[in-house]
């Protein structure tokens, strides 16, 4: 885990970006803070010696998914939430409680975990070719399953849009 100062700076940026994403009242700002968060996480992957995951993180999340988010926000013109109030008053407290639970779980895991095992992760060969070999040999079944899942989602979209187009023609 490279330089601890670098990690602290990146972690601070990631956390602040995440908080700002939730707090900002403008949907475009929220989306941009989420992009900043994704990019910071990608740099963290780079520090962890996982360049492939880092690049995929940027391409898929920051480059494709968030662009589509922005597209939808701009098309709907839903960027301003004027007069928006929290839907339920207790939400903040529930969220705070859950956050404390999560941090406590992390703390327990860190204290009870075996610190020597973390070195094994850093020593792994994370080159794209090795990753590909693992993905298509040891994990080929889950990988193909994901492919089928995505295909199902795609066919679903095609079917749904077909139906609505036909209905539009009838009406």
């Amino acid at each position: 885990m490279g330089n601890p100062i670098l990690f602290l700076i990146l972690a601070a940026v990631a956390v602040i970006a995440a908080v700002m994403m939730v707090r900002s009242r403008n949907a475009i700002y929220s989306a941009l803070f989420l992009v900043l968060n994704f990019v910071t996480i990608a740099v963290l992957y780079l520090i962890l010696n996982a360049p492939f995951i880092a690049m995929v993180q940027i391409t898929v999340y920051a480059g494709a998914i968030m662009v589509l988010f922005l597209f939808v926000i701009m098309l709907l013109g839903a960027e301003k939430l004027q007069g928006f109030e929290e839907s339920s008053k207790g939400q903040l407290w529930i969220a705070a409680f859950l956050a404390v639970v999560l941090i406590a779980t992390f703390a327990v895991a860190l204290i009870q975990g075996d610190p020597s095992s973390s070195g094994a992760v850093a020593g792994l060969d994370s080159s794209p070719s090795n990753l590909g070999l693992h993905l298509f040999k040891a994990y080929v079944f889950p990988f193909e399953l994901t492919g089928v899942l995505l295909l199902a989602a795609m066919i679903g979209v095609v079917v749904l849009s077909r139906n609505s187009a036909k209905r539009g023609k009838d009406a």
Binding site: F52, T59, P128
Partner: peptide
């Protein structure tokens, strides 16, 4: 190559 593709998508 992935670096180029990710920058193109950004």
């Amino acid at each position: 190559i992935l670096f180029i593709l990710s920058l193109a998508s950004i």
